[in-house]
Design a protein around this nucleic acid. Structure first.
Lengths: 192, 192
DNA sequence: GGCGTTACGTGATGTAAATCACTTTCGAAA
DNA sequence: TTTCGAAAGTGATTTACATCACGTAACGCC
């Protein structure tokens, strides 16, 4: 299935667009390929686009004092990623995004998103729902952070994304869970 | 300023509505008053509405094993609050909302929100932006949770809502920060 | 007013996880 | 294949915070 079809089916779950409408919407997306390790957004830079992942896996992360890294999101196929704070407010990026694996994405500029949202009501509807899902996921993760200990969060993560365990290095999983790599290592070796 | 005017100005920041359009939108909101301590949403119940706070302060919280409480949000005037997971998915509430002080709110049902969103494109636009702001705030809080220690988060909270310190009991602030009330007490008494 | 409930302060103790230091394994490039 | 750097495992030590235990102050309420 090609990028266009993947995006089409993704949007169709939330908004009913005619083929002509979708073609018009799609014309605002720019396909792009990245190699493993390539940087998509780096802290301090200007942010113009958001990214729809077609294949591969990105990570969005924050680096504190150039020492500790915290992963905000692993972006898998059909996920969207960007520094939305910087994108919406037209400020410098405060987070980084790069590629854990080779990846194909579809790029949509902030201006084009606002343009197609204002031109087509169903597109605005789609983006409202997409944002809403992101909000709910973020709330859930926050709650999990407060409520669960590290082991529970680790198991929750693997239950949610079984692929992740083999796909990404363990120190990145630790950075997502917000614990040191040593603690994570001890956690799943002291099994049970 | 009355409830209607407060909502009008709140929406006007994001979406341009004519007076007639706003009157129509407003006709879907039901004003309601609550007393301090009154329950708005309780875990396990059905959730039909979201709430726009006109005056007073609500708290949205989760209770773990009927022991520990975690506060997801203090809802101040012009904030929106609900169990959005339950509201959007039509499932039982997993969180609670009650009133820290006497409060006036405007209630909007899930059905009515979807109705006015589909009828008026600018309203859909407004709700997309409102959700987006919530998403960004949630991401920011998550990052703060991972990155900052308790003292830094405490100072961040007070910088963001100076009123809160005198308005809400300290054990609720502790529940927001995700620490025990004892730790919070020691934190701000061991000043500096 | 007295009385009970809830909020808040503070010491003693236990514990999960950070940190530091070192070793081992793995994977890619020469 | 050898080599080198990154990733991962592991022990010792430190630390921030939870928990337990108790005391005091503040407030609704009959």
């Amino acid at each position: 299935m090609d990028a266009k079809e993947i995006l089409k089916q993704h949007i169709a779950k939330t908004a009913a667009l005619t083929d002509e409408q979708f073609d018009y919407v799609f014309s605002h997306f720019k396909p792009r390929s990245y190699k493993k390790g390539q940087v998509v957004i780096s802290e301090g830079s200007r942010v113009d686009h958001e990214y729809f992942v077609v294949s591969g896996c990105l990570k969005a992360f924050f680096v504190n004092d150039e020492i500790k890294m915290y992963i905000l999101q692993f972006a898998m196929p059909t996920w969207w990623s960007s520094d939305y704070g910087a994108l919406y407010n037209q400020t410098q990026a405060t987070i980084n995004i790069d590629c854990i694996t080779d990846a194909e994405v579809l790029c949509l500029s902030n201006d084009d998103r606002e343009k197609i949202c204002s031109e087509l009501h169903p597109v605005e509807h789609f983006f409202r729902w997409r944002t809403n899902r992101g909000y709910l996921a973020s709330q859930k993760r926050l709650l999990s952070f407060m409520n669960n200990d590290t082991r529970a969060r680790y198991e929750e993560l693997l239950a949610l994304y079984p692929q992740l365990y083999n796909l990404v290095p363990k120190h990145l999983i630790a950075a997502y869970l917000g614990v040191s790599r040593e603690t994570l290592s001890r956690l799943y070796n002291t099994h049970k």
